[in-house]
């Protein structure tokens, strides 16, 4: 399962990164990398049950209306 996950990460990098580097779009590459790293950390976190902060709980704290 974990091998499949790593395979998916590699495929995403292979699809998106080479054109960005070739066209020298460093800003796009930075945005991609930040989102990709968050995505990788969270998908591994879900897989291994890491105690990461849950964004959904944060949203619930912000928006939950308690009469």
């Amino acid at each position: 399962m974990i091998i499949l996950l790593i395979f998916i990460f590699l495929v995403i990098i292979l699809i998106d990164v080479p054109p960005l580097v070739k066209q020298r779009m460093w800003k796009d590459l930075a945005a991609f990398s930040v989102l990709f790293i968050i995505g990788v950390v969270y998908s591994l976190g879900v897989f291994y049950d890491w105690p990461l902060p849950n964004p959904v709980k944060g949203l619930e704290m912000l928006f939950r209306f308690k009469p």
Binding site: I12, K27, F32
Partner: peptide, 21 residues
């Protein structure tokens, strides 16, 4: 950014992780 396409897959990764959370 110049294009939106490169951030689609990372966001998809994030969305699928969030689906479990």
């Amino acid at each position: 950014l110049n294009r939106y396409e490169p951030v689609v897959f990372p966001l998809a990764l994030l969305a699928s992780a969030m689906a479990f959370l």
